[in-house]
């Protein structure tokens, strides 16, 4: 059996440490915590930056797919030229807007332009879908079903890319603003990030549609 209780031994050990060592110890813990916070914020920031790049990738894929869709539909929709043409026009406008945004993502007006172009495109596609519904031959053709699945998927991907971006921005902003990280985030250079807002209801409807 021990001659003294463990608690007494611990107490005498603690009392013997000089205050300067204790101060150093506390400082070391603070620095270590700061490093942990920094690394975490860097990780989250890189995550949302990467998520932003994904949006652009998916937008491009969608723009590339639309001309195929229109070509396939053209043979059947001989009397719906206007509908098809509006889709191509909206698509071209969106391509230009996307390129502008890719080179200057921080500019709010450029982004707003893109969102407008996107909502116009969504509207045109939606009208085209309604038209296709009344042409059962076109709707049933294998080319059309496969293409429409690809288009649905691409639209979903754009939507999910934006959602993933917003989710990661939210994670980053929350981590940045909670205590105790909030004390250090300003000093360490972590600025709040912007959410990618979808303001147009039509745009929201166009995605996740099943044929």
């Amino acid at each position: 059996m021990l001659s003294t209780s463990p608690l007494a031994t611990l107490k005498s050990f603690l009392v013997a440490i000089p205050p300067s060592v204790i101060a150093l110890g506390v400082a070391a813990i603070v620095v270590l915590y700061g490093v942990v916070i920094y690394n975490r914020l860097v990780g989250l920031r890189n995550q949302f930056k990467n998520a932003y790049a994904q949006i652009d990738v998916q937008l491009k894929r969608r723009y590339d797919l639309i001309p195929n869709l229109v070509e396939t539909a053209k043979a059947y929709l001989k009397h719906e030229r206007e509908t098809l043409e509006s889709v191509i026009k909206a698509r071209n406008a969106a391509v230009i807007a996307a390129q502008a945004t890719a080179s200057n993502p921080a500019d709010a007006s450029v982004v707003r332009n893109l969102l407008n172009a996107e909502s116009n495109l969504a509207g045109a596609l939606s009208r085209m879908r309604v038209t296709v519904e009344s042409y059962p031959d076109l709707k049933a053709s294998q080319n059309m079903t496969q293409l429409s699945e690809e288009l649905t998927s691409t639209e979903n991907k754009v939507s999910f890319a934006r959602q993933a971006y917003n989710d990661s921005v939210q994670s980053y902003n929350t981590a940045r603003e909670t205590f105790p990280a909030v004390l250090l985030s300003g000093i360490l250079g972590f600025r709040p990030a912007e959410l990618f807002q979808v303001t147009n209801a039509v745009e929201k409807e166009a995605v996740k549609v099943q044929f």
Binding site: T152, K157, A161, A164
Partner: peptide, 9 residues
């Protein structure tokens, strides 16, 4: 396609 979409999300 569904898997790719979830991979993005």
């Amino acid at each position: 396609n569904i898997v790719e979409e979830m991979s993005i999300a």
